[in-house]
Design a protein around this nucleic acid. Sequence first.
DNA 1: ATTACTAGTAGTCGAGTAT
DNA 2: TATACTCGACTACTAGTAA
Lengths: 221, 221
Amino acid sequence: LKASLYQTLFKLAELGGCEARIRISTSSLAKSLNLSQQTASRHIIELDRLGLLKRYSTPRGVELTLTPRGVEELRRVYLTLKAVFEGRPKMLTLSGVVSTGLGEGAYYVRQPGYRRQFEQLLGFTPYPGTLNIKLYDSEVTKRRELEGYPGKIVRGFSENQRSFGEAKCFPATLNGVECAVVLINRTHHNDTILEVISPVHLRSTLKLTDGTVVNVSVKID
Amino acid sequence: LKASLYQTLFKLAELGGCEARIRISTSSLAKSLNLSQQTASRHIIELDRLGLLKRYSTPRGVELTLTPRGVEELRRVYLTLKAVFEGRPKMLTLSGVVSTGLGEGAYYVRQPGYRRQFEQLLGFTPYPGTLNIKLYDSEVTKRRELEGYPGKIVRGFSENQRSFGEAKCFPATLNGVECAVVLINRTHHNDTILEVISPVHLRSTLKLTDGTVVNVSVKID
DNA sequence: ATTACTAGTAGTCGAGTAT
DNA sequence: TATACTCGACTACTAGTAA
C-alpha cells in the first residue's frame, strides 16, 4: 500500500470512517490533508479499488466506510506503535465459557504434519482434540489484538491430496494448566471462538463442562 | 512531513530507534520497506535534515536515533489511532508525591490575564499558588499522553513588557478535591512534575506535606 | 562490503474542465 | 455547488557509480 494513501486512510479513520458510514466532501478532506481536491478524490477512488473502503459517490459529497481490510491495515500500524510506546504486554488474559465445537479441531491436531510442529514449537505433545472457548463479547477486541502479534508460526503442508493451511499459536495457561491457543490463519468468521490445545485432556483434568467459565492467559513476548 | 518519510520513520521506530541508537544498513532498511537502497539512504538523510533523527554514517552502516521531535511525531499518530481503536478514556489517573517547586507557579496564577481565563474555563477562582506533584517514573508516559489531548487552551498575552505563553489545562480531582492540571505549552523539561491549581489551598485542606502520595484524576473528554 | 552522489525516468500532483 | 477526468509540471524513485 502506497504511503500517500495511508495518510488518507488514516484521516478517514480519524473522522470516524471505521465504525459508521461518513459523508465528506473531497475538498474538505483535501484541505485537512493539505492536498488538492483532485488528489483527495483520486485517493478515495484508489482506496476503493484496493478494497480498503467502500464508496458511494453522490452529487452532494462522498459517503464511505472503511472495510474490515482497511481497518485491519490501520490496526497493524496501531499495534506496532503500541508496542513501541507502551512496551509489549507479556500476558493477555481472555475470558469465556467452554463450548462444544464441530470436532474438526481434533482432526487437525491428529495430523502428523501439525502434531510434529506443535511438539517442536510448544514443547509438548497435544492431546488429540481441542477445547473451544466461546469468548465474551468484550473480549473479542483482545482476540483481534492477539492476531496482530507474531506468535509461533505453524507452517502449512500438503498430504494425501489435501492441503493444510498455516496457523499461529501462543503458549498459554488455562485456569493455571499449560496449554496453547491456536489461531487458524485468516479465518475471520469465528472471531468469538478460541481454540486451545494442551498436553492433557482439559475437560477431564479440570472437570470442565459446557458453560464453565475459564480464563486463558496468553503469553505474547 | 512527507508521507513517504513517515513510512521510514515508522520502520525505524519499530526497529528500536526511539530508545537506543541502532545500527542499520540502508540496504536492509530498503528491503524491509520495498524501496531501493538509494531511497532509504536519502530518506534517512532527509529525516536527519528535518531534525527527526540524528545520524552517524560510517562505512559499515548507519547509526541513528530518533530525536524527541521524531518520537513526538509518531506519538501523535499513535494517540490518534488509539482514540480510533480504544475510544477516548474519560479519565486518566496519575500518581505521584507532593513536592515543593520554585514558587513561580504562584506568580503566574496571580496574573489577572491568566486568572480570568481560569475562572472562565474551569468555573473557579484559583487559589494563588500551585501544588507540584512529582510523578512516579511509571506515570510519565501518561503525562505525555495527556499532552496529546486537546484540553482547554489558556491563551498567551503580553502585559507590562512581559509576554506570557500559552498553556493548556484539564479539570481534575486530587484525592477527591476539585482542581485542574496546568500544562505549560511545549516545556519538555519538567516531564515529571505536574502543576495543579485549585479553588482551595490544597496543602492545608488535605493536610499535605512534601512526600505525601496523591492521585490526580484528570478529565479528558 | 558500505554510503550517497548524479542522471534519467516513472509516477504523483494539481490546474483546468466536463458532468 | 458536487465528483472526477485529462494532461502538463514536477516530485521522488531507481540505476549507475564514486568514494
